[in-house]
Computed example of a mutant assay.
Amino acid sequence: MTETEYKDGFYPDDFIEIENTFLPLPKGFSLEIAQQEIASTFTTVDGHKRKDIIRQYESAAIKYEFLTEKDFQTILDIITALQNAAYGIEKKLYIKKQSIPSVAGSDFKNHFKAITIDLVKPIKYAFKTRKNGLFIYSGITVNLN
């Protein structure tokens, strides 16, 4: 979907942007953002330990308690789009901040926290069958680094 379609139908939903494509996230998730680092630790000749930080980054975990089959398919489509995006294409997760205007302006992305996505870990989930053949997915976790 384009930016205009997103503003018209989904603003201010949280979304993932891959280059110029907007992919709104289904509602009802909890979000955990953690500061992560890749480091190397070694012991010097005199016995002191030294830790070199190679890279620091933010890691986001999106957790859904329950999802319908349609929303679960939306999550799978987003993950597939992230994994199929070519290397070097900008991929970002946008999470709305507390105070957000009801009308999207030209600089609406300033009202969202942006997290750059480099890696998507495999999705974790379980499902239950309900009446009328409806599947309810539970315990869905999407980890983005």
Rank of each mutant, 00 (worst) to 15 (best):
E5W: 01
E5G: 08
D8H: 06
G9M: 08
F10H: 11
Y11G: 06
P12H: 08
D13P: 00
D14P: 07
I16W: 03
I18E: 09
E19Y: 08
T21G: 06
F22D: 12
L23Q: 08
P24F: 01
L25K: 04
P26G: 02
G28H: 02
G28R: 01
L31K: 08
L31D: 04
E32N: 13
I33A: 13
Q36D: 05
Q36R: 13
E37N: 14
T43F: 00
D46W: 00
D46T: 09
K51Q: 15
K51A: 05
I53D: 03
I54N: 15
R55H: 08
Q56K: 15
E58V: 00
A60W: 02
A60H: 02
I62D: 03
Y64V: 03
Y64H: 05
E65F: 11
F66M: 12
E69G: 07
E69N: 13
E69A: 14
E69K: 09
F72E: 02
Q73K: 12
T74H: 01
I75F: 01
L76Y: 01
T80V: 10
Q83K: 14
Q83L: 13
N84W: 01
N84H: 10
N84E: 14
A85N: 07
A85G: 11
Y87T: 12
E90Y: 02
K91W: 06
K92N: 15
K92W: 00
L93R: 09
Y94C: 07
I95E: 03
I95C: 04
K96Q: 12
K97H: 06
S99R: 14
P101H: 06
P101L: 08
S102A: 14
V103R: 13
V103Q: 15
D107C: 04
F108D: 07
F108P: 11
N110G: 13
N110Y: 09
H111F: 15
F112G: 11
A114M: 01
A114Y: 05
T116H: 11
T116F: 07
D118C: 02
L119P: 00
P122G: 05
T129Q: 08
T129C: 00
R130K: 09
R130P: 01
K131E: 12
K131V: 10
N132P: 04
N132I: 04
G133D: 07
L134W: 00
L134N: 09
F135M: 10
I136K: 12
Y137L: 06
Y137Q: 05
V142P: 05
V142L: 14
L144H: 02
N145C: 02
